[in-house]
Nucleic acid binder design. Structure first.
Length: 282
DNA sequence: ATTGGTTCCTGCTGGC
DNA sequence: TGCCAGCAGGAACCAA
């Protein structure tokens, strides 16, 4: 599930439950996630007050009152669930790896079948030097991500533009779905070499990325497979996909000749599926 | 220095 | 109906 809009939705769900709360306990049932969780994680977290919950790229940052940050990444299959005091948590599943319990009686549960997710604790002051964050690109919804920035980044790059959009150093938080959807809106083929995306096309791409992400956040993210948000709400942006997962279906926008074009096409680029309309996107 | 391929793990799906 | 290969929203790592 989780690209930027989904992680943003998760953060917005977690913030009202967590901000100001004190961690009463941390239960870790699986220490082997993408990186091993240090054995002293629990003792460092318990008793700390949470000051705020924010997002950076696809990471969830939970700030503590001792200037440390608990960081979650949901990987491909990670989920957060909130259990209110008095409500019975679901029967423990095999992939319910971590519980954060607050003194208010709220339980925040991290579940991740594929274990591609991660849980870290990092000093706030050393974030900018941490290897996971030091070369992270600008937030796509911030002023730092502009046509000027992207133009400079892709200048001379001979890789397909689609690959650039998935590169977290170029722009932080896009994933496969929103990269495909952004290129569709901007009428750019995912196969076009990055250095050849210039001028109006480049401007339109930057705008499209910002628009598609904002609309997706507005919709509460996308719900694929069985994913639900932390509050149990379903995102519904998947209903707005124009190309993602629509191989062989007609393009919604262009009047291309069905016999010749055959609708939305799927290709493999560096191991990932790209969906596009070969008539509209050049 | 870029760039593309592989890998971690489990679950679901589509084709036979 | 059942089995299993292939594929999945991420990203670090490695080799060329």
């Amino acid at each position: 599930m989780p690209e930027l809009p989904e992680v943003e939705t998760v953060c917005r769900g977690l913030a009202p439950e967590m901000e100001g709360a004190i961690l009463k306990d941390v239960i870790i049932r699986e220490y082997k996630l993408r990186f091993p969780i240090p054995v002293n994680f629990r003792s460092r977290a318990v008793g700390r007050q949470i000051t705020n919950v924010t997002r950076r790229a696809k990471y969830i940052f939970i700030y503590l009152d001792d200037a440390n940050i608990i960081i979650f990444h949901l990987g491909m299959s990670g989920r957060m669930s909130i259990f209110q005091p008095g409500s019975k948590p679901n029967q423990l599943g095999p992939h319910d790896h971590v519980d954060l319990q607050t003194t208010n009686g709220v339980i925040i549960r991290f579940t991740d079948p594929r274990k591609f997710g991660l849980l870290l604790m990092v000093k706030a002051s050393s974030i900018s030097r941490h290897r996971l964050f030091e070369s992270l690109g600008p937030e796509p919804l911030g002023d730092g991500f502009s046509s000027k920035w992207l133009a400079n980044w892709i200048k001379d790059r001979r890789t397909p533009i689609k690959s650039v959009l998935l590169d977290q150093k170029a722009v932080a938080g896009l994933g496969n779905i929103y990269a495909c959807e952004s290129l569709f809106r901007a009428n750019i083929s995912p196969r076009r070499l990055a250095k050849n995306v210039v001028g109006v096309k480049l401007e339109r791409l930057v705008v499209s990325i910002k628009e598609v992400l904002m609309e997706a956040i507005e919709a509460g993210g996308s719900t694929l497979r069985d994913h639900i948000g932390p509050t149990g709400d379903l995102g519904y942006f998947q209903n707005s996909f124009r190309v993602y997962g629509r191989e062989g279906n007609p393009c919604f926008e262009c009047k291309c000749d069905w016999e010749l074009i055959g609708g939305v096409r799927r290709i493999k680029q560096s191991g990932r599926s790209s969906y596009y309309c070969p008539y509209k996107q050049r």
